[in-house]
Amino acid sequence: MPLFDLPLDQLERYAPEVREPADFDAFWTSTLGSAGAAPLVVDVRPERTGLRLVDTWDVTFAGFAGDPIRAWFTRPAGVRTPLPAVVEFLGYGRGRGQPHERLTWAAAGYAHLLMDTRGQGDQYGTGGDTADPHGGAGGQWPATRGILSPADYYYRRLITDGVRAVHAVRELPGVDPARVVATGNSQGGGIAIAVAGLVPDLAALLTTAPFLCHVQRAIELTDAAPYGEIVNYLAVHRDAEDAVRRTLSYVDGVAFARRAVAPAHFGVGLRDTVCPPSTAFAAYNQYGAANGRAARPHCTMHAYPFNHHDGGDAVHVGRQLRWLNTLLETTP
């Protein structure tokens, strides 16, 4: 795919006004307040993996509406001191899979919580273990489930799960609660940005090729899934556009990014037709803006001119590791 979005010099200045509902903050305060009424960590049990250098636990915590959310919690074996924790959110269609599949963060010396994604896990890898028992008017795919109402929208639930995952990891053994990081790629990157905007004491954000940023532009610029699922829904439900756009305004990553205060590390491929680069730059260029220019947190962006939705792949992960080690003053 050739370059199709704005040229890099324009992307570096791209900070569009993104529609934000007047009750955005009240909506999320109410949502998280309701979720907080449920006990947090429901179950923690050791998992036998056959791996000798890490220990893993099968964790269940209470997410949106108290729903049980599954996760893998992994730490370097034999380390007794409290460690910084990386909470990872998964890409669209993925579930938590098997505990030996994602070992980078534990191998780097971090505690690692991999949150399962409710109602997904049937498109890639080895599946998921978390149901989404809620309905709502809209399409069948997660991106369109409940999309006619902000209260019913799927991503209201998934973002709430993400915030609860950060709170849950702080209660797990061997975690330094002051050093918790949110990370993710694609859908996971969008959830991580939302978490950064909703958790004021997060230690850092790592996000690559983030979904759900500047959504109004994204659905006009690409018909690749998951945005394409919203486009296809509107192609059939022609009178639903106003309601859909209103719902999407409550989960837009730009609004969350503006409220974030944690140091942030972004990555994007300039040939990405799944999550167009201008949508990621819209969040990056306004990151921390609600707190005033003087208070803007340390924030860096790596753009890869010849990469697509992989966002720099293993090269970028190496940069994330070095950046986070320096930020948290850890020794790999």
Rank of each mutant, 00 (worst) to 15 (best):
D5N: 09
R13N: 07
A15L: 03
E17H: 13
E20Y: 00
E20G: 00
W28R: 09
S30L: 15
L32M: 13
S34Q: 15
G36P: 01
P39K: 06
P39G: 03
P39V: 08
V41A: 06
V42H: 08
D43H: 14
V44K: 07
P46V: 14
E47I: 02
L53Y: 13
V54P: 01
V59Q: 06
T60E: 14
P68E: 04
R70M: 10
A71F: 03
W72Q: 08
T74Q: 04
T74H: 02
P76W: 09
G78E: 12
R80Q: 10
T81R: 15
T81S: 13
P82G: 10
L83V: 03
P84F: 12
P84C: 12
V86C: 03
V87C: 07
L90D: 06
G91F: 13
H100Y: 11
R102S: 08
L103H: 07
T104H: 11
T104L: 14
T104E: 12
A107K: 11
H112I: 01
H112R: 00
L114Y: 01
G119D: 07
D122S: 14
G125V: 07
T126C: 10
G127Q: 11
D129H: 15
D132N: 12
G136P: 08
A137C: 05
W141R: 14
T144I: 06
R145K: 15
L148G: 15
A151L: 14
Y154D: 09
D161A: 09
G162Q: 09
H167Q: 15
A168C: 12
A168L: 06
E171W: 00
L172F: 03
R179H: 14
A182V: 11
G188K: 09
I191D: 11
I193C: 01
A194V: 07
V195G: 11
V195A: 04
L198K: 04
D201S: 12
A204F: 12
A204C: 09
L205C: 01
V215K: 00
A218K: 00
L221S: 14
T222N: 09
P226F: 06
Y227T: 03
Y227C: 03
E229C: 00
I230C: 05
V231N: 08
L234C: 06
A243Q: 15
T247K: 11
S249W: 05
G253S: 04
V254P: 01
V261Q: 15
A262H: 04
F266D: 01
G267S: 14
L270V: 04
V274W: 07
S278L: 13
T279M: 06
T279K: 05
A282E: 00
Y284A: 10
G288V: 05
A290V: 04
G292R: 06
R293G: 02
P297A: 12
P297K: 12
C299N: 11
M301W: 06
H302R: 13
A303Y: 04
Y304N: 07
P305E: 12
F306Y: 13
N307V: 03
G311M: 04
G312H: 08
A314N: 13
H316Y: 15
L324R: 09
L324W: 04
T326S: 15
T326G: 14
L327K: 09
T330G: 02
